[in-house]
Design a protein around this nucleic acid. Structure first.
Length: 830
RNA sequence: GGGCGUGUAGCUCAGCGGUAGAGCGCUCGCCUUACAAGCGAGUGGUCGGGGGUUCGAUCCCCUCCGCGCCCA
């Protein structure tokens, strides 16, 4: 036991010991009933660690540590989400390369020493290799911080969403979805990011308020208003609300588009808004998702004018006049709009001046330009968006799940209820899990999409860009009568939605999987309920016909001290490592643990300091309690000591209930309150007695209480508690049993401690008011109260006399009052 | 515009039908042999506004306002 205990260095010291002893290793011989399995969120490793990570991962760790002490074998893996766009962008910039799937794989490739000015095109496989190299470095940084933070992860169980096991699981899952008809490919209008050149799923959209302008155009005298005049050549109809009397006479007639001279019908549809613009709108293929709905429901033709690069296509759609169109071809949307407005003004078809407005426009959440709608072939997984029966089943799954806090379920219900299409899982990108299939080419070189060539599950993972289907050779790739691989990769969520299967060794290690699945806990943040949580439910529903876990614990967000969301662009991001270094991990964990589950929390360095104070106090109080000679075995006999243990028994009950109901913050609050009373009142009261010959009862109580408190604090303060534990106990506190009330229920009356505390407070108050030392003697202490309460005082009278330096005590029955008479202050010591 | 959450002492937050709580801050003290990165005491709130239910509301209901997230 050190003379001057310190928190410094405890993280490195104990992390090493825990690793060496396998303190947090999962016992894979444990039966399912004795396992607590956690579907840990895999953080995106291409960014830096955010204080929000520290916050929410601590919440999970608190539950893991509680369950471990409560006797479970805890399966607490760690995953890294390293596939997808963020990694691609990093690799491109870091190495100066770009992926070109048409380049053949070069086994001897090594990246340029310095990033070239012109990005070097490399094969998909080489590009993916570089992604692996870079993410491996990032993952080490993350692991280091998580270890410093004291996460009780079993580091033998890690995965990355791009590693072999993940790709195998994702491809296997997809092939099974395909075989059962849950996955399908379709040529359809799709939201498209023209910069990333990829399709985007509903869950990745966000609306942004953008400036625009209403342009009033005349179609054979019918005036419409549009924010996208550049789509005029893509116009296929006009539409008004069926009840709109102004336009009812026109329904069924046709009008002619200005400039391009295309005859289009005037139609009725309830989605048309009579109060918007002139009440009649032009339908283009495709300006937005409403156009898609109209196009589908009104059975309209396609006149595409925007290419996948966001520019006007070189040739006009059939029936569109070539002359004015040529002026637009090749221009981007902004340029085309400028030019067509000029042309419309010249022709007299533009009525008045454009009216500036701001309106919500759909963006890819990572994108910089508005999304366009293009027609392309994409893969989907059925998620109830087009199937009311499946949607109902998935809503029932949400109801089967136990949500912490319970109101988070509403977000799931709202999302599932509002789905309007299936889940688009294909991306026209490179660093992702490839779709594991090929297509034969007929003699004319046409792809036979309806006859895909599939690998067996035993062959997985495969890359159809470099692997060859059964019965073909590489030289048949891309030639008539040969084959081509599916060019797309899966969206990140299509892999991470299988995190329980990936982490648990689904099919690869059935024995392990059987001990984990379905998992006990999915911890995660609330903003990805609609993506990660829902997607995981969908996959498990299809694959296993059950929920992937019984409980979901949803963390809140960390906001900046002004309650604003932290974001790099605002420059208000708090980096966690400096706080871990400065205040210690236990202190930061204390701040995290103080937040109620699901509640957003403002970052508050003050709370971290309070946590450090608590951890420090724990070291000092422990040192003091353990400095008394080890008591002989025996009973705790003194009424005050028994009162303490009885009060502690209630804390144990409350903390246990709180942890079992996924509320560590409550457990901490109760434990902490008790602990300060223990230090400030109880220890002060029993100090003198514990030193003396009659001290055995107090010394026993001190040790019992300390033992219990260390266990109660262990989940929150793993380093300080382990340090103290090592002074006088064997093994790790983190493998010790969660405390029970056995040994605390001594039949004592907690009121004895309360009453003694009240009297002590009055004595201290008198000394404070007199601005004198606490050592100043009390010549007379007169306590007036009911007989019942006086009896409580008398049970602790000896300790009160010692702690208060009281010379005479008088107990009187009557109206409650405490009278303190002070003597001379003792001389000051040097 | 909709959904969910939230609004309690200067700050961060507990409490959630029966006379307002903690920590921090601030003020005043105390070298008290575990801890001066400590200890003791004090200070501080018409519980966002307005209605309603109730013997009684911070707590339940309605409505408005602010903030956060998600969605349109």
């Amino acid at each position: 036991m050190p003379d001057r205990p310190t928190l410094d260095g405890l993280e490195a010291k104990w992390d090493a010991v825990w690793a060496e002893h396998g303190t947090y290793d999962f016992d894979r011989t444990a039966a399912r009933a004795d396992v607590f399995s956690i579907d840990t969120p895999p953080p995106t490793v291409s960014g830096s660690l955010h204080v929000g990570h520290v916050f929410s991962y601590t919440h999970t760790d608190l539950l893991a540590r509680y369950q471990r002490m409560a006797g479970k074998s805890v399966f607490y893996p760690m995953g890294w989400d390293d596939n997808g766009l963020p990694t691609e962008r990093r690799v491109q910039n870091y190495y100066g390369v770009r992926c070109d799937p048409s380049v053949p794989y070069d086994p001897s490739f090594s990246p340029p020493a310095e990033p070239a000015k012109e990005q070097v095109p490399i094969s998909r496989r080489n590009f993916v290799d570089l992604c692996h190299v870079l993410t491996a470095e990032d993952e080490q940084v993350f692991e280091k911080v998580f270890r410093q933070l004291g996460l009780s992860v079993d580091w033998n169980h890690t995965y990355a969403t791009i590693d072999d096991a993940s790709r195998r699981a994702a491809q296997r899952g997809f092939l099974r979805n395909l075989a059962r008809g849950e996955a399908y490919a379709q040529e359809a209008p799709t939201l498209w990011d023209v910069d990333f050149r990829t399709a985007v799923a509903q869950a990745e959209l966000e609306d942004r308020e953008m400036p625009g302008a209403y342009h009033r155009l005349t179609f054979s005298g019918v005036e419409i208003e549009t924010t996208r005049p550049e789509l005029l050549p893509a116009c296929v109809a006009l539409v008004a609300h069926p009840d709109d009397e102004r336009y009812q006479p026109l329904f069924g007639t046709t009008v002619t588009t200005p400039l391009f001279g295309v005859t289009v019908p005037v139609l009725a549809h309830p989605l048309a808004q009579p109060d918007k613009g002139t009440g009649i709108a032009m339908i283009c293929t495709f300006g937005d998702t409403t156009d898609v709905t109209w196009w589908r429901e009104l059975d309209l033709p396609v006149r595409s004018v925007i290419g996948r690069d966001g520019r006007i296509l070189p040739t006009p759609p059939e029936g569109v006049a070539a002359e004015p169109y040529a002026e637009l071809a090749g221009k981007n949307v902004k340029q085309a709009q400028k030019r067509i407005v000029e042309l419309l003004a010249e022709s007299g078809d533009l009525i008045g001046e454009p009216k500036p407005i701001t309106h919500p426009v759909k963006f890819f959440e990572k994108g910089d330009r508005p999304l366009e709608v293009v027609t392309s072939r994409q893969w989907y997984i059925r998620n109830g968006g087009r199937d009311a029966t499946l949607r109902e089943r998935l809503l029932e799954r949400g109801a089967e799940l136990t949500w912490h806090p319970s109101y988070m379920k509403t977000r799931y219900d709202n999302w599932v209820g509002g789905l309007n299409g299936d889940w688009l899982i294909s991306r026209q990108r490179f660093f992702g899990v490839p779709f594991p299939l090929w297509y034969p080419l007929d003699e004319a070189g046409e792809l036979l999409y309806d006859q895909p060539l599939l690998p067996t599950e035993a062959q997985l993972p495969i890359d159809p860009a470099s692997d060859v289907p059964e019965g073909f050779t590489e030289d048949q790739r891309g030639v008539p009568g040969g084959f081509v691989g599916d060019p797309d990769v899966m969206d990140t969520w299509a892999t991470s939605s299988l995190s329980p299967q990936i982490a648990g060794g689904w099919e690869d290690d059935p024995d392990l999987f059987g001990r984990l699945f379905p998992y006990d806990l999915r911890p995660q943040a609330h903003e990805i309920i609609r993506t990660w949580l829902f997607a995981t439910v969908v996959r498990a529903h299809h694959e296993h016909d059950r929920l992937p876990w019984s409980d979901a614990a949803i963390s809140g967000w960390v906001l900046d001290p002004d309650r604003k969301k932290m974001s790099k662009s605002k420059g208000n991001v708090v980096t966690p490592v400096e706080h871990l270094d400065k205040h210690g991990s236990d202190a930061v964990r204390y701040w995290s643990a103080s937040a109620r589950p699901g509640t957003d929390t403002a970052f508050d360095e003050n709370q971290i300091k309070v946590g450090r104070r608590l951890a420090m106090k724990l070291l000092n109080a422990s040192k003091f309690a353990l400095a008394f000679p080890e008591p002989t075995p025996g009973e705790v006999t003194d009424p005050l000591d028994r009162a303490l243990l009885e009060a502690l028994a209630r804390v144990v009950e409350e903390a246990t209930t709180a942890f079992a109901s996924y509320d560590p913050s409550r457990a901490l609050e109760r434990t902490e309150t008790f602990f300060w009373t223990f230090c400030d009142d109880y220890i002060e009261l029993v100090k003198s007695r514990a030193y003396g010959e009659q001290g055995a009862s107090a010394c026993r109580a001190l040790r019992i209480a300390l033992d219990t408190l260390l266990r109660l604090f262990a989940p929150v303060l793993p380093f300080a508690t382990e340090e103290v534990w090592s002074w006088w106990q064997d093994g790790s506190v983190h493998r010790a049993a969660w405390p029970t009330t056995d040994g605390l229920k001594t039949g004592g009356d907690p009121a004895v401690l309360d009453m003694a505390g009240e009297v002590l407070a009055q004595v201290r108050k008198a000394k404070s008011n007199a601005k004198t030392s606490m050592k100043t003697p009390v010549t007379s202490l007169v306590i007036t109260d009911s007989a019942e309460r006086l009896a409580l005082v008398s049970l602790a009278q000896g300790d009160l006399v010692n702690a208060g330096v009281v010379e005479t005590v008088t107990l009187v029955e009557g109206e409650p009052a405490i009278e303190v008479t002070l003597g001379e202050a003792p001389p000051k010591q040097q």
